[in-house]
Design a protein around this nucleic acid. Sequence first.
DNA 1: GTGTCTTTGTGAAAGTGTGCACAAGCGTCC
DNA 2: GGACGCTTGTGCACACTTTCACAAAGACAC
Lengths: 220, 220
Amino acid sequence: MARLPIYLKLLSDQFDVGTTNISSEELAELGGVNAAKVRKDLSYLGSYGTRGVGYDVEFLIFQIKRELGLTHDWDVVIVGAGHLGKALAGYGGFGERGFPVGGVVDIDPSKIGGVVGGVRVRHVDQLTEIVQTKEISIGVIATPGQAAQSAADSLVAAGITSILNFAPNIINVPHGISVRKVDLAVELQILSYHEQRRVNARRVTKLQAVPGNGRRGASA
Amino acid sequence: MARLPIYLKLLSDQFDVGTTNISSEELAELGGVNAAKVRKDLSYLGSYGTRGVGYDVEFLIFQIKRELGLTHDWDVVIVGAGHLGKALAGYGGFGERGFPVGGVVDIDPSKIGGVVGGVRVRHVDQLTEIVQTKEISIGVIATPGQAAQSAADSLVAAGITSILNFAPNIINVPHGISVRKVDLAVELQILSYHEQRRVNARRVTKLQAVPGNGRRGASA
DNA sequence: GTGTCTTTGTGAAAGTGTGCACAAGCGTCC
DNA sequence: GGACGCTTGTGCACACTTTCACAAAGACAC
Ligand SMILES: NC(=O)c1ccc[n+]([C@@H]2O[C@H](COP(=O)([O-])OP(=O)(O)OC[C@H]3O[C@@H](n4cnc5c(N)ncnc54)[C@H](O)[C@@H]3O)[C@@H](O)[C@H]2O)c1
Ligand SMILES: NC(=O)c1ccc[n+]([C@@H]2O[C@H](COP(=O)([O-])OP(=O)(O)OC[C@H]3O[C@@H](n4cnc5c(N)ncnc54)[C@H](O)[C@@H]3O)[C@@H](O)[C@H]2O)c1
């Protein structure tokens, strides 16, 4: 379930603050969701709550981590050592959360040999070797859009089975490969859609406030 | 609908390639979704298709843009001029897609006065002035996690109504404010979950291949 | 015109997710 | 050890989404 990482974050924060026990109600409040949903989600892991008491924070964190496969680190390999690739490789939050950068590759000779985030940039041709040696399963695409498909193909050929794609293009991969896409433009456009609706709503309100000035019914 | 930005991207790409007309089938193929879903989504905009022919690419782009409120630019203001804030401000793709950076603010005096992406970094106290002057509706949070709530409060106080949050914390905002969150750790954890399931699946297969060696039923 | 071919737009069915409401179970207090 | 209060786990109904299937409608050839 896609909400487990959120619960994990909330629980980890609570654990840091010293909370040892938490109810579905409190957790729901923190995450801004329904308490019944929290219980349904958690019951999927097994019956780890105590009726009348709640959940043991530390134990629940462990169970979620186990379910998410976070009991050990997963190295990631980044394709594209441009602005984004460098920012990601240099960002400590990656490794802290169990995803150390195990390799960075690029196609541009001027980028190869440089060090970003403590890792040497190597040529994309060496991807298979890096992936096999370090047993990497997750690849990150940080190339320009038009190179994204080629980067995906290289990753798949190297034996990667999960891809996080930052390029604003949809990539085609064989069945069985997991892909997640992070597209800033899409996020901003969804916000802009909400803004647009706000503007429209205001206009309708205004028209309604001046009787006889608007057509009947709220068109568009 | 959250899929409109994706159709917009696909259609824009097709337009650039010279396609003037497209069927729901082709569009579905490009986006990797069901053709009926595409038609339902597009019919929400109105009846802009021609039976037996398909959709006029340019006209459809215009209609989607209108629906998403992309007929004019929306300036955004970035809070936090650190690694991520600088990368975002310097990233041309923002402005190209209709979201120019209208301002960058930080709380650290050493950051203020510097120029990123052609914009001067100003103090967070001047947020209201920047937002009001430039009529900005969208704010981006690129501060560390513990400062995210404070950044959100400042944005709301300044009059922002939509927030894109890159910090890995959930922020509380008044009713009526739209928030979207981009959390890399969550994305990676979802991928790791899939990887974990693959590992489990392999283990189960192996146990089944050696009869008598495994308990009955696939536990966990 | 008429017929045929293609593709839309949409009703209905199937599937998925959400939230309420409550019994079951645990701890605690007397 | 029994009653009470609190919280989980889940059956059920409802809402929303996805997919199928097909009639309606335009284009094009003749
Ligand atoms: N910079 C940002 O803030 C930002 C934000 C959101 C999305 N993005 C997206 O991230 C992607 C990268 O952005 P960027 O600003 O880092 O671009 P960039 O041009 O700075 O970096 C791209 C890098 O990819 C390398 N590359 C190109 N083709 C390659 C290939 N086939 N194999 C391996 N490496 C290859 C290039 O040599 C270059 O080093 C783009 O798709 C962009 O749309 C960037
Ligand atoms: N760097 C990355 O690649 C990356 C990737 C994913 C997520 N993130 C997230 O993005 C956020 C920023 O990351 P970063 O690497 O840019 O951190 P950073 O430390 O480089 O930058 C943070 C900036 O925010 C400023 N700031 C702090 N409190 C503020 C406040 N109250 N108001 C205004 N400005 C304030 C700081 O002065 C600093 O300049 C973090 O939450 C991080 O988890 C970063």
